[in-house]
Design a protein around this nucleic acid. Structure first.
Lengths: 123, 123
DNA sequence: CTCGCCCTTCAACATATGTTGAAGTCAAGG
DNA sequence: CCTTGACTTCAACATATGTTGAAGGGCGAG
């Protein structure tokens, strides 16, 4: 009785997700291998992604720009539902922004220490 | 008439700078190769760094955490005086913080777009 | 002047983040 | 059914960021 066909929307191919996310197909496979996105397989062993895949990849690219590794990004998405709600995205957003701000704060703190001539600026 | 001996304070060895900055000597050589720090050479071809070297490296490490590449960090230090004043450090600080905040803003903007259900969150 | 530690270069290795190409398979349109 | 384009895996390559080890040389203390 359970619906086993298209239980969720795993319908997009590698190429479609790649085009949507603005990256190469090889990058899509890379992100899947590293847990940033998830895929089901067709009977012919081809990957099928849901709609959130391209979105996750775009988030990953922006998060990489603030210094998060692919591993760290995958961790943020761990336990993320297949079909995320806007609230789910909101939680991810908070986590990523908090991390970015923590790193910026570390930078700012260290730079303040130096440029105020604290101890490192004994030049 | 010009003073050619110890024109500036290039007196620290690779190992000293490494210990001061908390990195491996190999990393110090790496940063010099990539323009983050500068060295003079002794007659015996050994590197000698000034006091700002360890400081630059520490800044570089923190800047890397917010996503800047070594190349980008070297660019920030391009044209930086050998013997930087606190104002010089202040300018570097402003540049780095501005870049970090720009990247965080990009992350924030993209995430806001998604989690508000704008167009990407048509899940 | 010699001893030992730190320095030198260079090549190989290691990890992260991908890209490219070869060889073969799948799937959708005619 | 058959062609064709997109898919598969796997290995090699590429760049960034370093580390490690070998072979040899400098420099300061005794």
């Amino acid at each position: 009785m359970s619906i086993t066909e298209t239980p969720t929307g795993y319908v997009k191919t590698v190429g479609e997700v790649a085009a949507e996310a603005g990256v190469a197909p090889s990058a899509v496979r890379f992100y899947e291998q590293h847990g940033v996105i998830r895929a089901e397989r067709t009977s012919g062993d081809q990957r099928r992604f849901d709609d959130s895949a391209a979105c996750r990849i775009k988030v990953a690219k922006v998060a990489q720009r603030v210094g998060l590794t692919v591993r760290e990004i995958a961790d943020v998405f761990a336990g993320f539902p297949q079909e995320p709600s806007c609230e789910d995205w909101g939680r991810v957003a908070e986590t990523l922004i908090a991390e970015a701000e923590a790193r910026t704060a570390a930078l700012r703190g260290y730079l303040a220490e130096i440029s105020s001539g604290a101890k490192l600026c004994e030049i």
